[in-house]
Amino acid sequence: MANNSTPSTQNNSDEIDLGKLFQLIGRGFNAVFNFILKVFLYVKKNIFILMGLVVVGLAIGIALNRIISKKLKSEIIVKPQLESKNYLYDVIGEIKANLKAKDTLFFKGIGIEKIDFNGLDIEINRVLQEGGSENDIKYLELLQSFENTDAIADIVRAELQNKSSFNHRITIYYKNAEFGKVFTEKILEYINTNNYFNVLLEVYRNNATYRIEENQALLKQVDEIISNYTNNLASKNSEVTNERIILDNQEQVNIADIFQYKTGLIRDIEAKKLELIENKETLSVVNLGQPQVVQKSFFGKNIVLIPLLLILLFFAISILKYLNRRSMSIS
């Protein structure tokens, strides 16, 4: 008999526990519903006050937007040359520190006589390139074909120099468009007045010019060889065997190698001409942006922020009044 009564007792206790659980859930829903209903009734009761606060806040926000001058900015995309990235960040940090200190002597030294520090600031960050990781993987796969060759050292050196010279964005904030333009020009001039890098640039440019002249002289000789070979081939007066030519009784030279050598000379001349263009200054300006208005976030605009603050202040005062009444009833 004892064994038969045990399961029924367990079932009854389970049914009681489930019933209590459903009652608790129902009470929870009722509490939430009552809270929402009270909030709705409170908002309904004070709807005209809230609407008035919104209208007043909008009016104040519009007035402030007209009174307060808009902040402007210029974004300059630059490329540091000759591994001058660290110097670029240091000099921008120096300028930023002098702006915070409002050091007029420093700015007079770089040619800015009258400076308005109101809203003036400068920042720098690297311009990120999309798809960089995928391109890096493809490039590493390509480098494997040059393994254990003399060309790998030059390729790696050039690539490391390129990777360390990403484009960077200098952002200058100001309030007066005319002054901002002058300030930007003077800052770029100051950055490019580093004596160390200017001397290096001069050496680089001289080397590149000399390399171009030498390559052009070699290219002229190669063109003469190819021209003579073509003329002799047409007249059939030269010893030609398997597309090879004999120069001044020396060993035979493959004509394909001569054309390949000519192509290499042309590419080297093109590369050096690009170096002459890029290495004019320590900091090459890729894009000198025009003044533009600083766009604030949605909640950072006065026309939205002030009405929101007034409504929050109203609710805060109401909560304090409610807590005060409750404390008075308890005491």
Rank of each mutant, 00 (worst) to 15 (best):
A2W: 02
L18M: 12
F22C: 04
F22L: 11
R27S: 04
I36K: 08
K44R: 03
I47A: 09
G52R: 00
I62P: 01
A63N: 13
S69W: 03
L72M: 14
S74M: 11
Y89N: 07
I92E: 04
E94Y: 01
I95W: 07
K96A: 05
K96H: 11
K100G: 01
A101Q: 08
I110C: 03
G119Q: 01
G132P: 07
L143D: 06
S145T: 09
I155C: 02
N162R: 12
N167I: 11
R169I: 05
I172P: 04
A177G: 11
F179D: 11
G180C: 12
G180F: 13
V182N: 09
V182L: 14
E185Y: 08
L188I: 15
V199P: 02
V199Q: 14
L201Y: 00
E214R: 10
L219M: 10
K220T: 09
A234Y: 09
S235M: 05
N249P: 04
E251G: 06
E251M: 05
F259I: 06
T263A: 15
L265E: 05
A271Y: 07
I277S: 03
S284Y: 09
Q292W: 06
V294F: 04
K301H: 07
N302H: 12
I306S: 07
L309M: 12
I311G: 05
L313F: 12
S318T: 13
M328Y: 06
S331M: 04
